[in-house]
Amino acid sequence: MSEHGQLASFLTNGEQRFGLVTPKGIVDLTRRAGEWRDLRHAIEGGALGRLVDIGHRHVADHALDAVTLLPPVPNPEKIICVGVNYPDRNAEYKDGQEAPPYPSLFPRFARSFTGHGQPLVRPKASDKLDYEGEVVIVIGRAGRHIAERDALGHIAAVSLANEGTLRDWVRHAKFNVTQGKNFDSSGAIGPWLVPFTEAAQIADIGLTTRVNGELRQDDRTGRMIFSFSYLIAYISTFTTLVPGDVILTGTPTGAGARFDPPRYLKPGDVIEVTAEGIGTLSNTVVDEA
């Protein structure tokens, strides 16, 4: 658990709710903080810190294993993903050992993600489902042409992602990877949001990915080619960032496709993405029904 508090979106009795995750379970804030409809609405109101404070005044209402955790931000306007953002990951590409001048970006749809504890779905169309552990930033303050020096002031929270990828489908086209990144429930975001309070919180986060307990990815955000600040500034040059927008900031080397032979995910596998100060996002794998 983090000292900053963890805010989760979840389902219980078929109803979508939100609350504060504590060592004893989830404090349901849906009616206790009735001013906000959901966590995206609270982000728009700059209220995540207030939600944490309200939650600490109450005891848990639900056991964590009795609810279904959802991706923390409901219905984000944009989910933007960054490719090739760690030096060792860049070195995997034969066409250039030097860092690229600009980040590679692509969109994902909300339906392509599930929540913590839910299975990733290996689709009928491919057996080449791969994992990518990433740190996620969530925008809290709208902006266009945001200066890099001001960018961190636009972050509301951080989270984690497993940016699940169908490796053969990302190569279907000459220039884009979108179709291989957007199969339903092929990735996950969560388990919760940790409100962002200071630059030191994200300056050099240790990030790991384990598959069935085996360490596969291990790096630090301080080594990213494009920093959090740069990504916000660059993206806001061409699109207005709004509260609740989600940015996946890239994955380290060590994905299954880079093994010889490749080690793709299969039903029953357990993938754990862990970052200091955020927590662990854990998912299993099932085949599409």
Rank of each mutant, 00 (worst) to 15 (best):
Q118K: 12
P103Y: 08
R144T: 14
N90I: 08
H154R: 05
H145D: 15
G83K: 10
L152K: 13
Y86A: 04
P103L: 05
G187C: 09
N162V: 08
V194W: 04
Y131I: 13
R220S: 13
T165E: 09
N162I: 10
G117N: 11
A161G: 05
P195D: 08
V135R: 00
Q118E: 14
T221Y: 06
Y93A: 10
Q97G: 15
T165F: 03
P123N: 13
R216L: 10
D204L: 09
V170G: 00
E92H: 07
G153Q: 12
V136S: 08
N182S: 14
D95I: 02
L129H: 05
S159M: 03
V136W: 05
D150H: 14
F109M: 08
A199P: 03
A151F: 03
G117D: 06
G206Q: 08
N90E: 07
V135G: 06
I146P: 01
A91V: 01
L160S: 01
G180D: 03
P123M: 14
T178E: 10
H145N: 15
A99D: 12
G96N: 14
A161Y: 08
D95C: 00
L215K: 12
G140K: 03
K94F: 07
S112G: 11
V211N: 02
V136P: 02
L193R: 09
L166K: 01
M224V: 08
M224A: 06
P100G: 05
L160P: 00
E163I: 00
E163Q: 06
V211M: 03
D168F: 05
P87R: 13
V158E: 10
